[in-house]
Design a protein around this nucleic acid. Structure first.
Lengths: 160, 160
DNA sequence: ATCAATGAGGATCCGTCGGTAATCTAACGA
DNA sequence: TCGTTAGATTACCGACGGATCCTCATTGAT
C-alpha cells in the first residue's frame, strides 16, 4: 500500500551486508541468518538484483555475493526500480482510471508533486547513506565481518 | 502500493452518485451501471460504508442508498479510514520492523512528514469538493438523475 | 574425477484484495 | 397475505506478494 515494498526493504538490508566491488563474497545464508530474511526468499531476491546489475553472485566453493558497484553509487531508486518497477509512479492516488492531466482528480496535482518529492529523495539516498539506520541484524553482521565503521569509511572517503 | 486502495476510489465515485441526507434513495444497481463498479462488489462496499455511518441503506420497495451526512462534511479521510483502516500510516516506508523514533531509517523523518502532509490533504478534501473531478460515469449519472450542477450547488450554498 | 559448497530454480503454500454468483431477507404495495 | 423489489450475506474464484521446501547446476578444492 506504500511506495516501497517489504521486499525492497529486504534488498536494502541485505546489500548493507555486502562488501564493495572486489571485496570478499558474502554467503546468502549468512546474510539471511543475521537479518532474519528468509533464506530461500533472499536467494531469489539476490538473483533478481544480480540480473539488474546491482550485485554479483558466484556459486560453488568460496562463492557468494558482492556489490557490483560502490555502495555510494547505488541509490534507493535503483533498488526500488529493480524490485517494484515504476508502474506505481503513474497510478492515480485513488486508482481512478479516468484521472489524467486533462481530467484530473482532486488530488492529482498534489499527488504528482508529492511523488516527485519522493522520487528526488529516493534518488539522493545511497546505500552508503543508509549507515545511519541502526538495523540490529545488519550492524551485528558488519561488526562480525570486519566492516569499516561508518566513521572509518568517512575518514577513508576524505582521504580519497 | 499507494496510500489509497482502489476500493476507496470506488467508494468515492459511488458516493458522488448519492443524494444528500433526506434526498431520494439511489439503487446500488444504478450506481454500478453508471460507474462500472461491479454490482456485487459495490453492494458489499455500500454495506461497509453503512456500518461506518457514512451512508444509509434501505431495502425493499423504494429502497436504496443515501448519504448519511452532507457531502461537505464527508472527508476523504473518512473514506480512507472506513475502508483501508489506519495501519498503513504507521508502517515504515521500507517495511523495516526495527524502524522507530529511537532507531529511525534514513527516510524516517522525511516519510513522517510526507505522511502528515498527505493526511492533512485527505482531511481537507470533502466529497463535495470532488465535483472538480470529471468522472465520466459519475457526471452522466448526475445529469441523468437531476442532480444540481456544481454551479447550482454553489449558488444555493451562497444563499444559505 | 570426485565431492562438498553454494547460488539457481521449480513447485507449492498462504493471506489479502478485487471480483462473481447464488441465495437470504427486509420492506413495501396490491 | 403474498409477491416484488430492494439490500445483505455467504461461498467461492483468481491474481499477487511473500514465503517455504526441495532439487538442480555450477564452482573450486582435493
Amino acid at each position: 500500500m506504500l511506495p516501497l515494498s517489504q521486499t525492497t526493504g529486504y534488498a536494502l538490508r541485505a546489500m548493507r551486508c555486502l562488501q564493495e566491488p572486489g571485496g570478499q563474497p558474502v554467503l546468502v545464508e549468512s546474510v539471511a541468518d543475521y537479518t532474519g530474511i528468509p533464506r530461500s526468499y533472499l536467494s531469489k531476491l539476490v538473483h533478481k538484483l544480480a540480473k539488474k546489475g546491482l550485485v554479483t553472485a558466484r556459486r560453488g566453493h568460496h562463492g557468494g555475493v558482492v556489490l557490483a558497484k560502490p555502495s555510494a553509487e547505488i541509490t534507493l531508486e535503483d533498488l526500488s526500480e529493480a524490485i517494484d518497477g515504476v508502474a506505481w509512479r503513474k497510478r492515480c492516488l485513488m486508482g481512478l482510471a479516468g484521472c489524467t492531466e486533462e481530467t484530473p482528480c482532486v488530488l492529482h496535482d498534489y499527488w504528482k508533486q508529492t511523488l516527485q518529492e519522493i522520487l528526488v529523495r529516493l534518488r539522493s539516498v545511497t546505500l552508503a547513506d543508509m549507515a545511519r539506520h541502526q538495523d540490529p541484524g545488519v550492524e551485528r553482521f558488519r561488526a562480525d565481518h570486519g566492516f569499516l565503521t561508518t566513521v572509518d569509511a568517512e575518514r577513508d572517503h576524505a582521504h580519497a
